[in-house]
Write a protein that binds this DNA or RNA. Structure first.
Lengths: 221, 221
DNA sequence: ACGGATATTCTTGTATACAAGAATCTTGAC
DNA sequence: GTCAAGATTCTTGTATACAAGAATATCCGT
């Protein structure tokens, strides 16, 4: 690797992203340049460069001459993001079904087995880790690294919420059976079934909740 | 609208984006801070903030202590982007098929008619304009504004290449018949057919070329 | 003349200084 | 006591100054 991130601006951007993800800032909170500069022990300059990164990735909004304000997704946007993630995973699955090699399928099955073992050991952290490996591997096997990057970006963005949500419902077992169906569809090279399985796996609550929200939103306009 | 973009950094970022899109910079070209500062008549500070935006949107790459270098997509990445666009449009179509109202279908059909008229008048610019309206409207009718934004982002990114490519092949007529099929599928509320039609419409060359490239790439590793 | 160590210059990254718009506070009229 | 106009303070946006790593040129030994 070249130039291993000596820039303080980048480190600060990473840290700010983490803080926003972790919910340390509420929606609409202003990111105070001087306070944060003091907090990080730097001048305003690198902070302002870091802000641009947050703004560009949609984590904050910049209003000229006013400042930058964090933007936490509300329930509607969150659901839209989950639906988009589900659709993108479905796409990855569709493409992967057409492109995965037999050995790649083996690798995926192995990741799934480790996932299963984590559940049997009640090792939640391991489950999350292996589940992530499973999904990232499917993105990669779409054979489209641009799509892969987009999927990773959204996956990362949703990470905090996914964790929160899965913990609530004890649906790890169901999740595993869905994984099995996904692997089977990929093994058979059935694009539509793989897409459907992945979409359903990620969508979770699915259409009803969305349509409810969506109708509320349009009614409110 | 609030604070109508007084920031020079933002104007510069926009202008730099345009320049990169227009191909004024080649792949790997370094964005010289002092030269560009002189060119825009500002100091390095706003330029550096603008750079962050380019880097965040993937138009440039920053190497610490070296500078920022523009990244033009090569043929492989370009094809990956087109494939991703095709898949995302397919997703938009799938969702729109389930969610569009009858009046929305009318609006879409009207846009399509204007598209057709533009062709009959051999008005290329009007065709591009109306074609864009047509596609943007489908994104919107996905009922998922997060997805809509993502689609718009990618559509915008591909704009220069699409224009270039469509001009070459005189396939406007074929494109129109595809539009008709898309509208028909949406009218019938058939998600799979709508998705398929849109995917095919955008994909253009499709799988063979991709697989060729993809195999070349993996072989080269 | 060639190669490598050193010196010089150039460029980036950060800090500070300054300008101007926004927000807040003060004051005065009613 | 309330409201508005003006004054004051605060914050952002930009310019400049300075520090340090990278690139380039110079010089020396062989």
């Amino acid at each position: 690797m070249i130039g291993m991130e000596i820039r303080r601006a980048d480190m600060i951007a990473d840290e700010l992203e983490e803080l926003v993800f972790a919910g340390e800032f509420g929606d609409g909170d202003r990111l105070d340049e001087v306070k944060l500069a003091a907090h990080f022990g730097v001048s305003r300059t690198p902070l302002r460069e870091a802000f641009q990164r947050l703004v560009a990735s949609g984590l904050a909004e910049q209003i000229p001459r006013r400042g930058v304000f964090v933007r936490q997704p509300g329930p509607v946007e969150l659901m839209e993001m989950f639906e988009t993630m589900a659709e993108i995973e479905g796409v990855c699955g569709r493409l992967a079904a057409m492109r995965m090699s037999d050995t790649a399928i083996e690798v995926l099955a192995a990741a799934n087995t480790r996932c299963q073992q984590a559940i049997e050991n009640s090792d939640i952290d391991a489950y999350y880790r292996e589940n992530e490996v499973f999904h990232h591997f499917i993105y990669q096997q779409s054979g489209n690294s641009f799509l892969e990057q987009e999927a990773l970006r959204l996956h990362r963005r949703l990470k905090p919420f996914r964790r929160h949500q899965l913990k609530f419902r004890g649906r790890m077992a169901q999740s595993m059976s869905e994984h099995v169906a996904i692997v089977a569809a990929l093994k058979q090279g059935d694009p539509d079934r793989a897409a459907e399985a992945l979409r359903g796996h990620v969508a979770i609550q699915g259409e009803k909740f969305h349509m409810l929200m969506s109708s509320l939103k349009t009614a409110a306009q």
